[in-house]
């Protein structure tokens, strides 16, 4: 038996990829409570990257830093860099509104606008920003709803309230709404945690279709989900990135003991 330190790990470097997002020493706090303690992570383009970890590990805060939503919480602050296509989104010259148009988000709980119809919900990102043209809106609505695989289910009732749909349909409506503003990146914060298994399967299938056009980051505490959909997975623990790797390798052969203990269910 050879000693443990002789195990060859030199081949564990990731195959090269083109990164869409890169964070450098990204720190985030609520007041004096630092919840992200310096994250260095490269997120590959047109892939699904899972951000996984136990509750309170900072995974949601991490993605909320990527579209500058974190800073909207009173008392919340961010340090470090987050590069989108090589440019720091926290640079003083950058308008957070532009970043949010390029980095869409789907939330944990489906949150369609309750006073708006299905149609108005899908195109809300356009109409709220002053787009008026009826034809443009109709085309965008159909395109986005088709992309979210919701078109066939709602095409005859676009005037109904968005809140009248089932939970899974509402979540796909929210995905369609995010896609309508044509982002490059889609952040999904535990998008299935409020859904039943059938609706979850639909969303996961949808994600694998969408990754050809979008860079997707999904937050999940569900390891099965990460292993099912994600090409890459980052394991977060107590505000730090413990390990980042191709999903299959991370699950089958983790480098870090902490990761191994988490995926074998020894804590979490």
């Amino acid at each position: 038996m050879r000693p443990a330190e002789e195990i060859d790990v030199s081949d564990r470097s990731l195959p090269p990829f083109h990164e869409k997002i890169e964070t450098r020493g990204l720190k985030a706090s609520f007041g004096s409570n630092m919840v992200l303690k310096g994250i260095d992570l490269r997120i590959p383009e047109n892939k699904i990257t899972a951000v996984m970890g136990p509750s309170g590990c900072g995974k949601t805060t991490f993605v909320r830093c990527l579209n500058r939503l974190h800073e909207l919480t009173p008392g919340a602050t961010v340090e470090g860099e987050a590069l989108l296509d090589g440019k720091d989104i926290y640079d003083k010259s950058v308008d957070p509104v532009d970043i949010r148009r390029r980095v869409g988000m789907v939330f944990q709980k489906p949150n369609p606008f309750p006073t708006m119809s299905i149609f108005s919900n899908v195109v809300a990102g356009l109409t709220l920003n002053g787009v008026r043209g009826k034809e443009v809106l109709e085309r965008t609505a159909e395109r986005s709803l088709r992309a979210a695989y919701l078109w066939d289910e709602v095409k005859d009732k676009l005037g109904n309230s968005g809140a009248s749909l089932s939970g899974g349909q509402q979540q796909r409506l929210c995905i369609a709404r995010a896609l309508a503003v044509e982002p490059d990146v889609l952040l999904m914060d535990e998008p299935c945690s409020a859904l039943d298994p059938t609706a979850t399967a639909k969303i996961e299938e949808l994600m694998t279709m969408l990754k050809h056009d979008y860079t997707i980051i999904i937050v999940t505490h569900n390891m099965q989900q990460a292993s099912r959909v994600a090409d890459y997975t980052g394991f977060f623990y107590l505000g730090k990135l413990v390990e980042f790797d191709e999903t299959a390798r991370l699950f089958e052969n983790p480098r870090e003991e902490l990761t191994e203990r988490y995926i074998t269910g020894k804590f979490g």
Binding site: N67, L69, L72, V97, D98, R100, R101, R102, G104, M105, F107, K109, N111, P112, F113, P114, A124, G125, L128, N129, C174, R177, A178, V181
Partner: peptide
């Protein structure tokens, strides 16, 4: 969640307040 939904779509804060 509704404010954030709107802000996340790239709608400025004041428009979010006025419209949503």
């Amino acid at each position: 969640s509704l404010r954030e939904a709107s802000m996340a779509l790239g709608v400025p804060r004041w428009k979010t307040v006025l419209r949503v």
